[in-house]
């Protein structure tokens, strides 16, 4: 059950999107998210949909895999849709007793749903097509300008990659401890919230103890291999832009200009 958590799950395929520099993909994801939030009319949403569809097609990852990320979001999605639907003041178009759906509420709910779904799909494509180490490399290099402000970018990137390395280990350990506790009669699924929280204590304590021991061991092993925060490290796989990366940047620029441009189209059709 815990294993079902998909965290940065990489789907290995030979595709243009997989091949792109991680920095480009990070920027692309950001640009796409931005475009969702400045989209105001149906044209903008149409372009965003087209953009996303292109990415889905190009990345060669099965659609079912891409949509998997949505499952965990359904509840959040429903809540935000329902709230917007019923609680937005405006012109009533449907009534259930004291509850009224307004025209404005409907529009906001639809926009919200599209934004959330696209947002999840967009970032899923990023993590499905980029290995964790490439992703952290991309962040490190992409954010290296922050070093000027004394942000330890390289150290943060290393921390992230170590976290990714140890997540499967800690998940396995959690399962082991859970099994051991269950076999002694612990029940993690029953009872009130307080009971559930209480049943987690004997799970978390050994987990933390073990995590700290591992962290200590790892720190020693890293020091033994000449790690120190004062050395300037080289890279086995240094990032370098290729032709396709520059082309993608141009496409991204054109895309965001297009979205901005749609804000100036005056339309009076439909509900949007």
């Amino acid at each position: 059950m815990i294993r079902d958590i998909t965290l940065g799950q990489y789907y290995n395929r030979e595709s243009v999107i997989h091949f792109l520099d991680p920095r480009v993909k990070l920027v692309a994801t950001l640009v796409f998210l931005m475009s969702l939030f400045i989209s105001t009319n149906i044209f903008a949403y149409a372009f965003a949909t087209l953009f996303l569809a292109m990415a889905i097609m190009l990345c060669k990852v099965p659609l079912s895999f891409i949509l998997r990320g949505l499952k965990s979001l359904i509840l959040l999605l429903l809540i935000s849709v329902v709230f917007n639907l019923f609680l937005t003041p405006g012109e009533t178009i449907l009534s259930f007793g004291i509850l009224h759906i307004t025209r404005e509420g409907l529009i906001i709910a639809i926009k919200m749903a599209i934004r959330l779904v696209y947002l999840v799909i967009g970032s899923s494509i990023l993590t499905l097509t980029t290995t964790p180490s490439k992703l952290t490399d991309g962040l490190e290099k992409g954010l290296s300008f922050l070093k000027a402000f004394r942000v330890p970018v390289a150290e943060i990137a290393l921390m992230m990659s170590i976290a990714l390395r140890f997540i499967p280990i800690l998940i396995e350990e959690t399962e082991k401890i859970m099994n051991a506790q269950s076999s002694r009669g612990a029940d993690f699924d029953k009872g009130s919230i307080v009971d559930k929280a209480k049943s987690l204590v004997p799970l978390l304590v050994p987990l933390f103890v073990s995590a700290f021991r591992r962290a200590n061991d790892l720190a020693i092993a890293m020091e033994a291999r000449c790690y120190s925060d004062s050395v300037s490290r080289t890279k086995l796989k240094p990032l370098a832009y290729k032709g396709i990366d520059y082309i993608t940047y141009v496409i991204l620029f054109l895309y965001i200009m297009l979205i901005i441009f749609t804000r100036y189209i005056k339309i009076d059709v439909g509900i949007m």
């Binding site: 061991d217 050395v231 080289t234 240094p238």
Partner: peptide, 23 residues
């Protein structure tokens, strides 16, 4: 508790990266 990276090759590189060896 002594392997830093998720991929074998990248872990073997860790010490070399610390020593500043060229790619």
């Amino acid at each position: 508790n002594q392997i830093v990276s998720s991929i074998v090759e990248e872990d073997i590189a860790f010490g070399l990266e610390n020593l500043g060896i060229e790619t």
